[in-house]
Nucleic acid binder design. Sequence first.
DNA 1: CTTGACCTTCCAGCAACTGGAAGGCCTATC
DNA 2: GATAGGCCTTCCAGTTGCTGGAAGGTCAAG
Lengths: 141, 141
Amino acid sequence: MNIGEASEQSGLPVKTIRYYEDIGLVRPLRSENGYRDFVDSDLQRLKFLQRSRSLGFSIDECRELLSLYEDRNRASADVKAITHAKIKEVDRKIDELRSLRKVLSELVTACHGDDRPDCPIIDDLSGQHAPDQADESTGRS
Amino acid sequence: MNIGEASEQSGLPVKTIRYYEDIGLVRPLRSENGYRDFVDSDLQRLKFLQRSRSLGFSIDECRELLSLYEDRNRASADVKAITHAKIKEVDRKIDELRSLRKVLSELVTACHGDDRPDCPIIDDLSGQHAPDQADESTGRS
DNA sequence: CTTGACCTTCCAGCAACTGGAAGGCCTATC
DNA sequence: GATAGGCCTTCCAGTTGCTGGAAGGTCAAG
């Protein structure tokens, strides 16, 4: 199977497949004409990669998962541990984004959004926290 | 002010500040000895960049916000629009991560996680959806 | 005068691709 | 047999936003 069909079957772009070969994630044979020749097990690997990448595993994690995939004696606990760590990572990212969202939406709410130049968003970004209703008892010099 | 102090004051690493100069985000003067000399307005820009980057704005968005920041006649609506778009982007990312999390946690739940080699996570990644209790009325050929 | 902290430039690398140039191969049609 | 188009090859460069390191200049203190 040529790279074009492997691309179609796996859902990975041709360029990406070549890249994956470069970094040793897949090792297709070569035909006499120099074309890559993907056999069924190569295709399985590509599909595996497509799916695990889309689930947010890094290339290195995919490498690890692939070797477990191909180890008929693996312990499922190993796979579970990697997946669990990934969930925690995703949770961290969600939390981060949520607090980001909170700040941004506070800014948007505070901004009247009209033709006038004064803008609480810019003020905040530039480090001037409008006193609003908060009291700064010491009073900035 | 030398770059070291600018770094301390702005909270940006020295390397990052040099990089920001490279890409034209800040243009400090130079002293006779060739050292960068940051004046107050440079520092303001750096602080602005630090804050807006940490809020998830891309370099290009920061550039845009900076020019609004320095435009005394800007309309706050413009700033609000950019911020609003960023919120929507954050929302999209959160949604993506949430659905990712869902799949991952389903996998973890399905995996018994012991010494045995059979592993629903690997099965899923390799495209073999275990029939479980779901009915596939058509039955895959 | 030397030490050490600071500063400079330039080059390389990270992740994970993506785009493009220049050229070889293969099949079909005229 | 020539040519067109579609596939394939390699290699190099660019993306984003920095970060690390080497090699060397500058400055203040002891």
